[in-house]
Amino acid sequence: MMATTHALVGVVLAAVTTMVAPELTPVALPAAVAGSVFPDFDLYSGHRRTLHYPTYYSAFALPVVALAVVAPSVPAIALAFFLTGAAVHSVMDIFGGGLELKPWQAASERAVYDHFQGRWVPPKRWIRYDGAPEDLLVAIALASPALVLYDQPVTLFVGAVLAVSAAYTFLRKPLAVLVERLVPALPVGMQTRLPDRFRDASK
């Protein structure tokens, strides 16, 4: 799924504090959004394997969330929302497409690597690929309650993220074609720095 969709998941997760303890929102919101996009920082180094942990994030998040509820503190709340966001992200990617430049072709059976089981989890393709129309619909569904629950500047952030989501959805397939054409023209040294799916698609 799109990184922007994951970011909106973080916004929705933090809405719990907005409804129950609004004074904690300034801590929970950035932590939840950061955690929700954090796994994708492995985009250029073992994507969906280096920083994606569908089992371990969840296992670590449970006791931290319990601690944040029983003995709330800024560090505990921040860590609880960060780990929850990262856990949800890692699991959500299983329901998307495979790890390839053109996931709509459904050629890859690698969605997310589960370090606990020591294997790649195959994609379910409920969301066919990142930037698919249904991915945008999920983003809109996530943004809708956020626009109601939050005030500015959060609503401006949500609106901007939604606009980026729409633009990416429109450009997703043309961008893949552009990458296919550009990668072979790059110096070999630069090609080796690109994600595997970029290099594989250009062969």
Rank of each mutant, 00 (worst) to 15 (best):
H115K: 14
L24I: 07
P72C: 09
A78F: 00
V177S: 11
F170E: 01
P103F: 01
P123S: 07
F157L: 14
W120C: 11
P195S: 07
L162I: 00
F95W: 14
L62Q: 07
V112S: 11
Y150V: 03
T55N: 05
V91P: 04
Y168T: 05
P187A: 06
S58I: 04
R128H: 12
V70P: 00
A34F: 12
M190I: 11
P22I: 06
T5H: 04
V12E: 14
L99R: 04
A71R: 15
D151M: 04
D196H: 15
M190W: 13
Q152W: 03
Y113P: 05
V154F: 00
I94Q: 13
F38D: 00
V12G: 09
V161L: 09
A78I: 02
V138I: 14
L142M: 06
A61D: 05
V16Y: 09
G97D: 08
F116Q: 14
L171M: 11
L99T: 05
V20G: 00
P75N: 08
D200Q: 15
P174Y: 00
L149H: 10
A66H: 00
V9H: 03
T5G: 12
D196C: 10
L101T: 02
V164F: 08
L29E: 01
T5Q: 03
V64T: 02
Q105G: 05
A71M: 13
A185H: 13
F60P: 01
L101I: 07
V33M: 01
S45N: 13
F157Y: 09
D114V: 12
K124L: 15
A71F: 14
D93W: 06
L194D: 06
T84N: 04
G98V: 08
D151E: 14
H89D: 01
H6S: 02
P26I: 03
P133C: 12
A185I: 00
L99Q: 04
V65W: 08
T50S: 15
E100S: 12
D42A: 08
A59W: 13
I140S: 11
L182R: 14
V12P: 03
K124D: 07
A176K: 06
L13A: 12
F116Y: 15
A28E: 02
A14T: 07
P122A: 14
V27I: 15
F82T: 01
L182S: 06
H47R: 13
R110V: 09
L83T: 05
K102L: 09
A21W: 13
I77R: 03
L43A: 14
E109R: 15
S165Y: 00
P103E: 04
L83W: 10
V33F: 01
R110F: 09
A160T: 09
V74S: 00
D114G: 07
H115I: 11
A107W: 03
R181H: 13
I94S: 05
L142C: 05
E109D: 15
R48N: 13
D42V: 11
R119H: 12
T155G: 04
A34S: 13
D114H: 09
G118M: 08
A14N: 10
A68E: 05
A166I: 02
A167Q: 13
L67P: 00
I94R: 11
L162N: 01
M92G: 01
V27S: 01
A80C: 10
D130Q: 04
H89M: 05
R172V: 10
L8G: 08
R193Q: 15
E134C: 05
V11F: 10
